[in-house]
């Protein structure tokens, strides 16, 4: 199985080596989030399987189960929205993130500076 972010490693190679460890670090954590989100969803959705069912003495109320499922659902949507927002922000700022000393983008050399 390939690493899902292999394309990013590639992009990294193109953008430039060394420094900006912070940037790479942030991106890795973002990818972790992408991978953890569905896992979190699965775990949360499996929790109801541990509840006592209708045949047992003290079954969980349907309304409670209903509220639980929909709250988890809404939470996952919110996290997904957050992730989308994070990568959009990242796409805009990943190259200009401060890395210690601010580097002013060098002005294109003008032929007629007079």
């Amino acid at each position: 199985m390939t690493a899902p972010d292999s394309d990013l490693i590639h992009a990294e190679g193109r953008i430039g080596p060394s420094f900006v460890n912070q940037r790479t670090y942030r991106r890795r954590r973002l990818m972790d989030m992408a991978r953890l989100l569905p896992l979190l969803g699965i775990v949360l959705l499996m929790i109801p399987l541990l509840w006592s069912a209708a045949d047992d003495a003290d079954p969980v109320n349907m309304s409670d189960a209903f509220v639980y499922i929909y709250v988890v659902w809404g939470g996952l949507i919110a996290l997904s929205l957050l992730f989308t927002w994070a990568i959009r922000r990242w796409a805009q700022h990943w190259t200009t993130e401060p890395t210690g000393k601010p580097e002013t983008p060098s002005v294109p050399h003008h032929p007629s500076e007079l």
């Binding site: 899902p4 972010d5 990818m31 992408a34 991978r35 989100l37 569905p38 969803g41 699965i42 959705l45 109801p48 349907m62 189960a65 209903f66 499922i69 659902w73 996952l76 949507i77 996290l79 997904s80 992730f83 990568i87």
Partner: peptide, 25 residues
């Protein structure tokens, strides 16, 4: 069968929220 029906929608939800390394590819 009670809440079991919700799985039909929760399945796609899981796929959609893992779009970054699944559907995108």
């Amino acid at each position: 069968s009670g809440l079991e029906f919700a799985t039909i929608y929760l399945g796609p939800t899981l796929i959609m929220i893992s779009w970054w390394w699944g559907l995108r590819k």
